Simulated assay, not measured.
Amino acid sequence: MKPIIHRSGLSVAGLLVAGGCIAGPAVAAQAAPVTTAPVASVHTDKGGRADQADKGGRHDKDRRAGRRAERMVGIEYQAQPNFYYCGPAATRIALSAQGKALPQDEVAKMLGTTEAGTDSALDTTRVLNELTGGRYRTTEIPGPAAKPEEVDRLRADVIAALDEGRPVVANVKGTAVDTDGHPQSYEGGHYLTLVGYRDGGDLIRIADPASPEGEYWMTLEKVANWIAERGYSS
């Protein structure tokens, strides 16, 4: 079986041209970092609202099962300051929800991040557990596309983690289109943070340390297929 992920970091060329990512060796040690300064924004926890049924009746089903129809976890968003800090930035966003707003440099050191990126979702799980008490686990989606049961597993994992106030760190690869029609493209791999859900988990809120949008919504199935051949910490 292939490793859960390869190293992932934004290429300088990708940042300037298409927002893509690479896996493997860094492009150049002298490459210029992202010029956008980290931006902070804080969510407020909106709580669950299960009193409005969607077309499929999922909200009513969730209410009967005692589940929330939506959840937004309070986080402090920061953009990554260079082409290879997606792992530290995404992990730091997740940590901020749990009162661990560490500098990205400190998180990068713990992850073992280099200019080649961050090795594995196993590393994000390890660091999250070291700093927050050990409730995270790593899940792999090994195939080229997520199976229905893997989509359902992701939904359950995201809901369970976010209901406990723990954002999920996901490693993704390829291009996926958010609900506003913006393509988010990371052909070599990228880390980002899942910070909310609505419609019973059909839609996922993503805090992306490299995207111009910063945060956006995406369907669960697209997120699962984005993670395919990689893994996530939940």
Rank of each mutant, 00 (worst) to 15 (best):
L220G: 09
K173L: 12
G24T: 09
M1A: 12
R205C: 02
A161Y: 05
T124M: 06
V168Y: 03
G134E: 07
N225M: 08
L102W: 02
A94W: 09
I93N: 10
D105Q: 15
A170V: 15
K147M: 15
G48E: 10
K147I: 04
A26E: 13
E106D: 13
I5F: 12
V27T: 10
Y191S: 12
R155S: 01
A97Y: 09
T44N: 00
Y77L: 14
P142Y: 02
D163H: 03
I4Q: 06
Y85P: 02
S11C: 14
K2N: 12
A146R: 08
R155A: 05
L10M: 13
A97S: 14
A210M: 10
T118I: 10
S8V: 04
L122T: 09
V168P: 03
V172M: 07
T118E: 06
Q98C: 07
P88C: 10
L102S: 03
Y85A: 11
T179C: 07
L128G: 03
P148H: 13
A145Q: 14
G200I: 04
F83G: 02
A146H: 15
R64A: 14
T219Q: 11
A13G: 12
P167H: 04
R68N: 08
I4C: 07
A101M: 09
D208M: 00
R198S: 13
E115K: 10
Q98W: 00
Y85E: 05
E213R: 15
G9W: 14
A26T: 01
P144W: 13
E215C: 04
H43T: 13
A29I: 12
A210W: 03
I206T: 11
L203C: 05
G87D: 08
R7S: 11
R126F: 01
D62M: 14
A116I: 00
V39A: 04
E229M: 15
R71W: 09
P142I: 02
L128N: 04
V151L: 05
Q104N: 06
P212R: 11
Q98E: 14
D105K: 14
D208F: 09
H190A: 06
G143T: 11
Y136C: 04
G19D: 11
S234N: 15
K46A: 10
E70P: 01
A37Q: 11
D62G: 04
N171V: 07
G9A: 13
A161S: 15
L154A: 12
V169A: 09
K55S: 05
E70S: 10
G117T: 06
Y191K: 06
D199I: 01
A37I: 09
N225F: 01
R205G: 08
A97V: 10
A90H: 07
M1W: 07
T179K: 12
G174C: 05
R67K: 15
P209V: 01
P212E: 12
D199P: 02
Q184A: 09
